[in-house]
Design a protein around this nucleic acid. Sequence first.
DNA 1: GCCAGATACTTTAAACCTAAAATATTTAGG
DNA 2: CCTAAATATTTTAGGTTTAAAGTATCTGGC
Lengths: 159, 159
Amino acid sequence: MTTAKLNAAPRPLSKQRLRLWLRLLRAARGIEGELRERLRKEYAITMPQFDVMAALARKQGGMNMTELSRMLMVSNGNVTGIIDRLAAEKLVLRQAPATDRRSFIVRLTPKGASQFAVVARAHEGWVDELLADFDAAEADHLIEMLGGLASSSRGETQS
Amino acid sequence: MTTAKLNAAPRPLSKQRLRLWLRLLRAARGIEGELRERLRKEYAITMPQFDVMAALARKQGGMNMTELSRMLMVSNGNVTGIIDRLAAEKLVLRQAPATDRRSFIVRLTPKGASQFAVVARAHEGWVDELLADFDAAEADHLIEMLGGLASSSRGETQS
DNA sequence: GCCAGATACTTTAAACCTAAAATATTTAGG
DNA sequence: CCTAAATATTTTAGGTTTAAAGTATCTGGC
């Protein structure tokens, strides 16, 4: 093949990027929907609640509300309700730091940590299954390519 | 370098896929958030409303509610409210087909179509800007890789 | 013609989500 | 010390989202 891509219409690059964005959004929605459904059916937990617990599990020292909202890329007001519900289930607790009475540290309770460990194992298996099309090299490549996107588009690099 | 990737820990593939999923979700959320904010600020329209209008603009004959909910990958009950609000703004209309009184066809009004054309042009420019890191070859490659994901994970291939 | 099941849409309840305003507290300048 | 600005969180209003239940209509078997 000397003339590459006979069937590809000569779209402008912006159209191609739009197409890429639609694919990206569609893939994320599809996987997210499937994971959400399994979390609900098998463990009676919502995805946002799982996301918060995952963030807390990675930071042993706990996090305040602002850190949580930034890490999960959701609005700060939103985190309040999610933490309220997790706290009502005794999966997390709010801890007042001595120095700053405006904020507090959110931590997993022992119950929350052990429950999360169980759900996280299943979650990893589901993701492994849903992304089974990607071998190690493709996954690496894709991770690399997606790397810069999120950080550059929201906040971080505003001068 | 004879031994490739000295710094990459020898993670199991499932961990790598999990990492990929987190990147994918983060990228999608970041871009989506940025687009949502611009749609709201510059054109006073929500992203779901824009998504519905985009779907309708591509299908000249209009679509019914079920088709819309499947194309946008949102629940059917959800579409009702979005169409209600668009209809209140006279951007879409519900048209009763002669044959089936359970359903109806949703179409863009002329006002809706012309308004969408304006917003869509801006939207394409924003996506072009936000995905500027990708050249044509990378975009093609990524589109290809993401292609199978969405369809395989929700519904379509259930036997 | 009748009726069981399928299909199309809406409604409901609960959770999520954002932006903006409100509240409380801390910090820094004077 | 006092106060303006910054920071941390909650509250509010409006919209989005899902799953499940409800209503209306259609279809096919009899």
